[in-house]
Nucleic acid binder design. Structure first.
Lengths: 244, 244
DNA sequence: GCTCGTATGTGGTCAGACCACAAAGACTAA
DNA sequence: TTAGTCTTTGTGGTCTGACCACATACGAGC
């Protein structure tokens, strides 16, 4: 413990300063050279720690001079969660099955809560995205991007940043798989139309406060595409029904 | 895009090798000097990328010589998720409220699924931990550590690694808060006994296949401690009831 | 054949040197 | 005075080369 690696010393110091309130979102970190001198480590070790903080979404760095330069605390968790999950899927630490299962849990609960407390303002962004998805001249990639934004906007409507970041990470981690499933579809236009219809059905169920219907629709919506593209062929086990 | 930073080049290369199967869990990465030469970047840039991979739980590094040394792909997501969430809470990117809410969602679904498919083997580890918690001469810190392991063991019983890593991250991110709440308790022995009782109640409900009871117990169990320690005082809003 | 010292190569770290860049100040010309 | 330009300064980004501690593999000596 007394023999922590140099970059960990830097990381721990910054974490302590965050917890104690010395560092707040928006604040500048000391310069790399100053930090190195203050902590008695080399500048390269400081940089390794800052690189970690940057990937985790805690800081943003910019070179040059002035108030916009340097390392600034931003605390935007989305990118970090996405990188973590994406790499874990790539390294087979996370299976696509488990990712989909977890997405199913969170998104079912999301629409359940939205329907349980219907608020049309919460559906403004999702409905805008639905309209955008009605355009006939969208490539499958463009459509799927809007699709992802639609699902994420539902979670965002709950206002829970942890949930939002997690959902964003789950989605981006299997984005490559989702795209790779396109050629396996019998007919993209047919699939697109089905997705459009299910999106409307889901949104309407939420607006109507029909919790049960919303849960059923989102469950089928997610699992259908997963199965339809053949992404679920490896694991013979079926996707369980939504809990209650 | 053509002007990616040097460390990102390394990261992308490794991610590509993972996705293409060139790199597999258990494999050794090329040496830092070799990677630097191969990619045309400096060794320090390679190290920044490796540091990120290490924190995210993708690799483990060891110095020295022989088959145990070097950077090895391990893909253990737990540590990375914990670091990410812990730092985001410290930097106020995640609120404790949102963490608890998310934990509530995931853990309610966890016990719900366990109760829906009762399997006594799945409860072996949790029950062992319950016995350990019965020891009279445990410090509050030791008790809370076992408590955390108990909750995590329930999630582990589902066999979903994404869920397990996420739960571990959520828990560790508020560990400091949980510990800091101890002095706010009226009586630790009374609280410990209540926790013991609720744990038994939960385990029995799962074993009996009583989904509704399990959901209710886990909800109250989590929210009670949160409120009891005064950790919820900042936000006046009450914790919502479990969905359905 | 066994033991033990040594050679070798690894990651871990540091110091120093550039570079590109952005801002602030100084300087010049209208 | 004012507008524009140039120079200075300090930042992060990167590379190089140099050590160190460490764990293994090799080989000399017993």
């Amino acid at each position: 413990m007394v023999e922590a690696r140099a970059w960990q010393i830097v990381l721990e110091r910054i974490e302590q300063d965050l917890l104690s309130g010395v560092l707040q979102p928006g604040d500048h970190l000391p310069g790399e050279r100053a930090l190195a001198a203050e902590l008695g480590v080399g500048r390269s070790s400081v940089r390794e720690a800052l690189r970690v903080l940057e990937v985790l979404g805690l800081i943003r760095t910019a070179s040059g001079s002035g108030p916009r330069s340097g390392a600034i605390i931003v605390a935007l968790p989305g990118g970090g969660m996405s990188a973590l999950m994406r790499l874990q899927v790539a390294a087979q630490g996370f299976s696509v099955d488990d990712i989909v299962q977890t997405r199913l849990i969170l998104e079912t609960e999301t629409v359940s809560r939205l329907a349980g407390n219907p608020d049309n303002r919460a559906l403004t962004v999702p409905r805008t995205l639905l309209s955008a998805m009605d355009s006939a001249n969208l490539t499958p990639e463009e459509f799927l991007t809007l699709d992802a934004q639609f699902h994420l906007s539902l979670t965002e409507a709950l206002g829970n940043h942890v949930l939002t970041a997690t959902m964003a990470g789950l989605r981006s981690s299997i984005e490559a798989y989702v795209q790779s499933g396109l050629p396996g579809l019998a007919s993209w236009p047919a699939t697109a139309n089905r997705l459009r219809h299910e999106h409307r059905e889901l949104t309407d169920a939420i607006a109507a406060g029909n919790v049960e219907l919303a849960r059923t629709v989102i469950h089928d919506h997610i699992t259908d595409y997963y199965v339809e593209t053949g992404l679920a062929e490896r694991s013979g086990e079926s996707v369980p029904a939504p809990a209650r």
